Computed example of a mutant assay.
Amino acid sequence: MQARGRLCVGIAPHPALLAAWGLADDAAGLERFSLTVLEAVGEQVAALKPQVALFERHGSRGLAALERLLAEAADASVLTIADAKRGDIGSTMAAYADAWLRDGSALAADAVTLSPYLGYESLRPALELAGATGRGVFVLALTSNPEGASVQHAGGADSVARRIATAAAADNRAAADAGGLGSVGLVVGATVGSAIVDLGLDLAAVNGPLLAPGLGAQGATGADLAATFGPAYANVLAPSSREILRAGPDPAALRAAAGRTLAGLSG
């Protein structure tokens, strides 16, 4: 982010986008789509975020396409965030951690998104492995979808979202003492409006990166992000997918779209 700004480009090969690019809705089309995005904007933005479900829908061949994308991104020193939203308990959570965060795993990314709704501590295998391998996690904390409030806002002043943010801050404390960001980031929607303040979340104190989906096609602007996140804005990584991907398949057009989006992000 210091070198390239706060833009993260989502790799979201929806069937309609594949068709718009003139690609088949199959594993081969998926791979061509993904590698084109990597080639076009990989060196321009802070990270790429493949949406894992859109690879899984093509079965083992789709996952093989994801493996190739992750490997080629790593070879090109492009950071990747696997948007998998994994969450479970015990040995199953350890297996998810092993798949997405272990050195040598074919699916290893630089970070993975996690769901904490079996309890934040259920994520411990992934939190520990991320710290040990120099990778990171982004834990769902406060999302923009209307249904999310029924869980995340529950508890009022002691909301679920606030507890997740407090737990992440505790895990990042050693990094904060050393003057850096911790390996536990949060997912906080760019369009949550006043919810951060209303629920009393101190996102700056989390001292981790904040993945803020909602930029572009979902309605948020760079100015909205700065206003919503306030003192924590310095740690915000802003994903955008449709706004940029619909400019493809021409690599130059993708680069130009990413450049326009990046220019709209202040700081």
Rank of each mutant, 00 (worst) to 15 (best):
V192I: 15
G264T: 06
D88R: 09
Y120E: 00
A106L: 14
V160Q: 01
Y120L: 08
T143H: 06
A74S: 15
A247Q: 07
P50E: 02
V139C: 08
S122P: 00
A65K: 06
T221H: 02
G259E: 06
R135W: 08
G62V: 05
P231S: 09
D224N: 14
A223K: 14
L114V: 13
C8H: 02
A212W: 01
S91A: 09
L79A: 14
A19H: 14
A95S: 14
L17G: 08
A20K: 11
D177G: 08
A94I: 02
A190K: 02
Q152P: 06
L215H: 03
S91D: 12
A47Q: 09
A176Y: 04
P251D: 13
P249L: 11
L203D: 05
A28K: 13
G248L: 04
G230A: 13
D110V: 00
V41P: 01
D75R: 09
T228N: 09
Y96Q: 04
D224G: 13
P239S: 05
A253R: 13
I244C: 05
A108N: 04
A174E: 15
P15R: 15
G119K: 10
T228L: 08
A256P: 04
R86S: 03
F138I: 01
A95C: 12
T261G: 12
L245V: 02
V137M: 11
L66I: 09
P231E: 00
E128M: 13
W21I: 11
V188Y: 00
L140E: 07
G104A: 09
G214M: 03
